[in-house]
Write a protein that binds this DNA or RNA. Sequence first.
DNA 1: TTGCGTGCAAAGGTTTTGCATGGCA
DNA 2: TGCCATGCAAAACCTTTGCACGCAA
Lengths: 137, 137
Amino acid sequence: MKEQKIYRTRQRLQIMECIALNREKHLTADEIREELKKIGVEIGKSTVYRALEKLIAEGRVRKYIAEEGKSACYQYIDEGGDCVRHFHLKCTRCGRLIHLECDFLKDLERHIFEHHRFTVDNTRTVLYGICGDCGNE
Amino acid sequence: MKEQKIYRTRQRLQIMECIALNREKHLTADEIREELKKIGVEIGKSTVYRALEKLIAEGRVRKYIAEEGKSACYQYIDEGGDCVRHFHLKCTRCGRLIHLECDFLKDLERHIFEHHRFTVDNTRTVLYGICGDCGNE
DNA sequence: TTGCGTGCAAAGGTTTTGCATGGCA
DNA sequence: TGCCATGCAAAACCTTTGCACGCAA
């Protein structure tokens, strides 16, 4: 099992920059291409998908399933930030992303590790559901 | 807004029976067709999808979306039963999808609802991480 | 007889892959 | 120079839709 070198290509840097600039939103693969097109940059579809794949593997980008049937969304993860530690809840109705710092979730991690031999990675895990505001309607 | 009549056709009954027999698993639309083919029954793709759609609307079947792009899974809901809901764990190394039925997760749902006003939807939530087998290497 | 259901093929949409070419290190 | 990356088109995938025909009630 050997590590593969990762080249810093123009495309990869621009995709990364685009996501970092839009860190408060979350973009689909195609929206990333659109954003880049606005500033005169064209990048092939497959390149975007392949770049995102690597960024997710590196833990620099988080992938969301926005809505069924629709395309996935991607969002920048601030390095060293709190997001690496806490959990995320995403409302499937309004799309809001809630950052959750809570000891109960640490217990969850421990429980799953001890009883089910599985180490949860919360940089990739998102809990989907309905937030309080949407549930009250 | 008027109710639409629902006919009890051969296909619908067989699909329902197939899901009910496999209640401890969850099947994709195509797996349902495969199962039926084993006993010499052939049902068109679209029929299966359309039947499942109605069964979900009736609350007789639950749909799980483990991963975007991949096929959805369907599972029978026991009437009056305990609603054996489960969560999914996915190993990001070997790709294995683990079905987790565990009371701790019910506690998690309750906790998040009571303390954070958020209703977790376990039909589309997947916890990512490293499974025991991969972690030991 | 009415109108919902079926099944085929085709369409739709997102993501992946094959392959020749390009470019980082 | 040796690989990895790119980009195009094509393929792969799951799901939905159009339409003529079938069948439950």
